[in-house]
Simulated assay, not measured.
Amino acid sequence: MTEQLTLFNFPATETIKPIHDPYWDEIVLDEVIPDTISLSVEPRVGEQVTTDTKKSAPQHDTQNQWLEKYWVERSGSKYWYYRYMWMDGRKLHRVYIGSVNSPKAREKKSAVESAIADGQTPQEIQKLIRFWRNNNDKM
């Protein structure tokens, strides 16, 4: 009767000796090593070259302030709004301006765009937006 093999009961086997084939050394040295050791400064196809260490999104201007149109979903419908955004260091700040459908919000949006173009600081633009809020959105 033959004995059933278990996890810890193996028959004695020969040890397998590794065989060295120089053919595989040539393939590995020719194909793998040049790619891993590549010290080329030239960019590869599709690779972006950046010389500026300060990275910013395309909508950002040099003052790190911009207007954004965004949406909120409620009850399966999208509602679109405008907001003023600026960066303070690495902190992102947002201030609600109004609905895209509102004529007052469109006027505020154009006023904020003009203020950004005039080079006003985020603090000055915040005061302008607070003024509208405190005066019941009168422009």
Rank of each mutant, 00 (worst) to 15 (best):
V49E: 12
K109F: 06
E113H: 01
R74W: 10
R94A: 13
Q63A: 15
S102I: 05
Q48K: 15
S38M: 04
E107Y: 05
L128Q: 06
S40D: 12
S75N: 13
E113N: 04
L67D: 03
H20Q: 06
N101M: 07
Y82W: 14
M85D: 04
F131M: 00
S99C: 05
L92K: 15
T50P: 00
T13Q: 06
A111K: 02
V32N: 08
P34E: 14
N9I: 05
M1V: 10
E14N: 03
V112L: 06
T53H: 12
I97T: 01
I27H: 05
L29D: 12
D137R: 04
F10I: 02
D52N: 13
P122S: 09
Y81F: 15
N101Q: 13
K69E: 15
W80K: 11
D52R: 14
G98N: 12
I116L: 06
F131Q: 07
M1G: 13
P34G: 14
F10D: 03
K78F: 06
G119C: 08
N135S: 11
K17T: 07
D25G: 07
E26F: 05
W24V: 11
W132C: 04
S56F: 13
W24P: 00
D21T: 02
N9Y: 06
V45R: 13
T50C: 09
V45D: 13
L5P: 00
G46C: 13
D35P: 00
S102E: 08
Y23D: 15
Y96W: 08
E113Y: 00
A105H: 03
E124N: 09
S77V: 11
T15E: 09
E124M: 09
A57D: 10
K55A: 13
K17F: 01
S99P: 00
R83K: 11
R74S: 11
Y70C: 10
N134T: 02
I27Y: 09
L5S: 09
E68C: 09
E31V: 09
V32H: 08
S110D: 14
E124Y: 06
L128N: 00
P18R: 07
A111W: 01
Q120P: 01
I27A: 12
A57I: 03
T36M: 13
A117R: 10
L5Q: 12
V32D: 08
L29F: 04
Q65E: 04
A12W: 00
P43H: 12
K109I: 00
E124T: 09
G46Q: 09
N136S: 08
A12V: 10
P34F: 07
E107L: 13
